[in-house]
Design a protein around this nucleic acid. Structure first.
Lengths: 225, 225
DNA sequence: GTCTTCGATAATCAGAATACGCATGACCCC
DNA sequence: GGGGTCATGCGTATTCTGATTATCGAAGAC
């Protein structure tokens, strides 16, 4: 799986790169639009992540050029939160999904997975622990067949925990993955969200799945009544 | 396991500190080069994390001074992404690894573990002595397959002892590595925690693993019933 | 060479102090 | 109004303290 990142802010680019590399994707980065357009046309990437704010050639032009060249590779665009119209234009011009800055890295990884999966016509990839099932493609969560509604933060948190089930996840780890790039608050948001999740997922079941590891963090697993 | 962070940005320093503390490491922070150099020479740390951009004394000089003082402690340097030459100089001057800012905190933790592991000559993830097994990724401890619950101090103490199994660990050594800088010496906390550990780990087994070395300290090993 | 004594060191225990996690409700912003 | 965030206070697990009891080992007595 090979991914191209077209992004001029080095900070953001390297952050994304590292995250994707940890997921075992091969990653290329380029920082200007013209080079990006050329790379995208020459090399058969599985996914392109494109920042719309670019020097050289505007991202939207890169997008059009790539689609004009009949490249069908899925494209995920990054936009500033405010630029709604840009986003719309992007989707119109052939982008497959978008993400507004600042975004949680986990969110980006999730969407990356979804796009790659969609592209390869596959649809499996369910996450399951005990009778708790999470479907990343449609963000559906069930326990014992019962549907559970989660807000998007709750969902992101749960997906992260399920992908790392059994490991002890420290608060900084969770913050880094589920909250924003520049998360550095010393509040108890994470505790609060764990509590929300417990209410929705573990309440009423004799065997809880979310466990506190006092002094360290949290972990998701079976056993340990 | 005791780690020194030499970093002048309070935000970064405290973020790293928290993350490492949640991993049960004892952490000291200092914010200028000169003090850092002195601490590094005086105290026997297991790892030093050194920012190359420092007030007082440039990080690279700290590094050289520490190595000149024949301190073999692994050193992880932090550099700005752009400063490639700085990085190279750092490795030349005796650093063991580097990380470019900004970095994912997990990355830092992973490298920390890797360095500590490398230093202790071990290579797997699990620590094992006789039928006592400690798994650092999920903080799980078992003896003879039986799970053992430990508090985080107990865990930290045991991990330190297992990483130094066979060696006689003096009380000051244990205090330095498992407790923090401002350790109020000459209480018997350590004895107390050894006692707690014995209750949880050795009680009921004919062959105890924790041994007292009268007049010196404690050691963890097989044999010598 | 063995036994006893005695000071020094270590182990244990119970209670005090502290830190931690959690629930709850206020706040804010879209 | 709903989702997301933050602050407060409470109950409790954990950590620490200090006193008490147990153990060790060297030195002297027999």
């Amino acid at each position: 799986m090979r991914i191209l990142i077209i992004e001029d802010e080095p900070k953001v680019a390297s952050f994304i790169r590292r995250a994707l590399e940890e997921e075992s994707y091969a990653v290329d980065v380029c920082s200007d639009g013209i080079q990006g357009r050329d790379l995208a046309s020459e090399i058969d990437y599985d996914l392109i992540i494109l920042d719309l704010m670019l020097p050289g050639l505007p991202g939207i032009e890169v997008l059009k050029a790539v689609r004009d060249a009949k490249v069908a590779t899925p494209i995920l665009i990054l936009t500033a939160r405010s630029k709604v119209d840009q986003r719309v234009k992007g989707l119109d011009a052939g982008a497959d999904d978008y993400l507004t800055k600042p975004f949680a890295i986990e969110e980006l990884i999730a969407r990356t997975r979804a796009l790659l999966r969609r592209a390869s016509g596959d649809s499996a990839g369910l996450l399951q622990i005990d009778d708790l099932i999470l479907n990343p493609t449609n963000h559906e969560v069930t326990r014992g067949g019962q549907r559970i509604d989660l807000t998007s933060k709750e969902y992101a948190l749960l997906e992260y925990m399920m992908r790392n089930a059994g490991r002890v996840l420290t608060r900084p780890m969770i913050a880094e993955h589920v909250w924003d790039l520049d998360f550095d608050t010393f509040t108890n948001v994470i505790d609060v969200y764990i509590s929300y999740l417990r209410n929705k997922i573990d309440r009423g079941y004799d065997r809880g799945l979310i466990h506190t590891v006092r002094g360290s963090g949290y972990t998701l697993k079976l056993t340990d009544a």
